[in-house]
């Protein structure tokens, strides 16, 4: 079983982390916006349902949520989760969507009422006001907290080993059990390089929007 070299094993493990990272982003970014609109809804039951959901997700450990997603379908509905990767994706998407929704909400609420009113008195529709005036200001404001959250996500993907997903740290631990410690420590390099790229990317986006102030 241990025929592969440590570097090969770590690399194949890190591919799992990266897959989990991108799929989570792809699904959680839009889902977060849906939760935001629910949280800001004028329809009270929907608003409270959404805020309770966010409270539960943010108030409990992601590690626990991974277990719940893996075991609850089998225990409660006799429909066991047959893919650990799918279970991890579901838990991460739900968790991160909740965090993103709060970032979006903060961004949207920070745009002054005057911006909406200026659009209104110029005869713009609600849709035009949102897309032509509000959206870019929101994006500019949420880039810094969003980059924080995204960088946290890369490291959080390693939590998936708790439900038996062979991501990079789990791969490295196999070598530790054989008395080989350096593969475990060298996992840091993978995360550092990947997050370095993300940091540069977010820095570039921030610079792109430096031409105006909000």
């Amino acid at each position: 079983m241990m025929a592969t070299s440590p570097m090969e094993s770590l690399s194949s493990g890190f591919i799992i982390n990266i897959e989990l990272f991108f799929i989570t982003l792809l699904l959680a970014l839009p889902l977060g916006l849906v939760i935001t609109f629910c949280s800001m809804s004028k329809f009270k039951p929907l608003k409270w349902l959404s805020r309770t959901f966010v409270w539960i997700i943010r108030g409990t450990p992601l590690m626990l949520q991974l277990f719940v997603v893996l075991y609850a379908p089998g225990l409660l509905f006799s429909m066991p989760m047959n893919s650990r990767f799918t279970a991890a994706v579901i838990a991460f998407v739900i968790n991160y969507a909740a965090y993103f929704s709060e970032i979006y909400r903060g961004g949207i609420e920070s745009v002054s009422k005057g911006q909406y009113e200026a659009g209104q008195v110029l005869g713009m529709t609600k849709t035009q006001i949102f897309f032509k005036i509000i959206l870019l200001q929101v994006i500019k404001r949420i880039i810094p907290p969003l980059s924080n959250e995204v960088i946290t996500l890369t490291k959080d993907t390693s939590l998936a080993r708790i439900i038996g997903l062979a991501e990079i740290i789990m791969c490295a631990e196999r070598f530790t059990k054989q008395g080989l410690i350096w593969p475990l420590f060298s996992t840091a390099v993978f995360f550092l390089v990947f997050n370095g790229i993300l940091t540069i990317l977010f820095g570039w986006i921030e610079k792109k929007m430096d031409y105006f102030r909000v």
Binding site: S112, E117, Q120, V121, Q137, R213, V214
Partner: peptide, 20 residues
């Protein structure tokens, strides 16, 4: 309302220019 309010222009105390 959108059509009718165009009879009026509005200049705000806090300008409310679009920053972008």
């Amino acid at each position: 309302i959108r059509k009718n309010r165009l009879h009026f222009g509005m200049v705000f105390q806090s300008f409310n220019l679009f920053p972008q």
